[in-house]
Design a protein around this nucleic acid. Structure first.
Lengths: 103, 103, 103, 103
DNA sequence: GCTCAAAAGTGCAGCC
DNA sequence: GGCTGCACTTTTGAGC
């Protein structure tokens, strides 16, 4: 049998579930479940977004254009942040402290 | 100027923010903001997942294999759901009604 | 004028069709035509598939269920391949070499 | 057991593989296999296309731009066909016969 | 015509 | 740091 932990173990004693391959299988299980839980939440959010688009369409809006608008706003936001980080860089280079870094 | 609402308006009165193009711009704004909020939450979850992988890696696990394991589990889950929907389909084909349709 | 070859050329002499932008335009043309030919074949196959479904429907089969069945078979096949690649991954992690890599 | 043929049968005798649900299961199997074969060929072609792109990249071409070029050519071709079919329509309306369909 | 699912294209992260 | 492979997004096509 192979090491299902995915851990780079060197002993590979394969004792029991709680300690397989020299590294905690229970720990691995924990990581995997946490990730799967988070991915489910992501999936749920995707569903929510889909619903909002559906609702918007039901109110006569063109979702294709909406998506475009949102993507543009995202781009602009990214640019803005880019500019801000550049500004901070300049300020740091000039020995200035940022008034208040936005959290 | 073009109609940025994406609404299938015919009047395009462009009065104020609350009513552009014959359909509520405020309503559109609301939809857009809801979507952007949800997308932010998704992004945050992606970050969380990334962190978990990093933590796992810090504990000696091979993230590449972990990802593979998770993808397989996802596949198995997908197949299970497929089986269920197929069963429903067969039942429908046989004129049977589902005992209780899950809401 | 811009470089339509897509090649990372530095000269941009734009002599003739056989040599544009310092890199063979004829070569590019060849690649493009090969791709377009392959895509046409793909499209033809899609048409063939459509025809088979139509024929099946003409013989009294429910194409919706057929599609479902086929998708499930595909899923099962995908999972099988996933399992195999996972096995390879495990073996690699254990420093084992594959007996013989299937061509 | 349910009717796996997907056929809209009313008898559902479920005799054996060659005749399930009143309609030929063997026939269904034939349809399914034909479709799966065609889909495999499609997949193979996708792989071929991928290879051509890789080869082009290896020769210094920018595949992203290549894809753009190809998509534009496809669009232009669609437009051209649109024009031609319109022309044919006009000619038919005028009682003219098409000389010979352009290759 | 609208909705939904499959396919393609794009962008990103991990790896060499 | 370039590249391959992967995930997400977008687009296209089929079904109802």
């Amino acid at each position: 049998m192979v090491d299902v932990t995915g851990a780079t173990s060197e002993s590979k004693r394969t004792k029991k579930d709680a300690d397989v391959g020299g590294i905690g299988a229970g720990q691995l299980r924990s990581f995997v479940e946490r990730i799967e839980r988070l991915e489910e939440e992501k999936k749920a959010l995707s569903g929510d977004i889909k619903e909002v688009y559906a609702e918007a369409k039901g109110n006569g809006f063109d979702t294709k254009i909406m998506r475009k608008v949102i993507s543009i706003r995202k781009l602009e936001d990214a640019e803005r942040q880019e500019q801000e980080s550049l500004l901070e860089l300049y300020m740091a280079a000039l020995g200035m402290v940022p008034q208040q870094a936005a959290e």
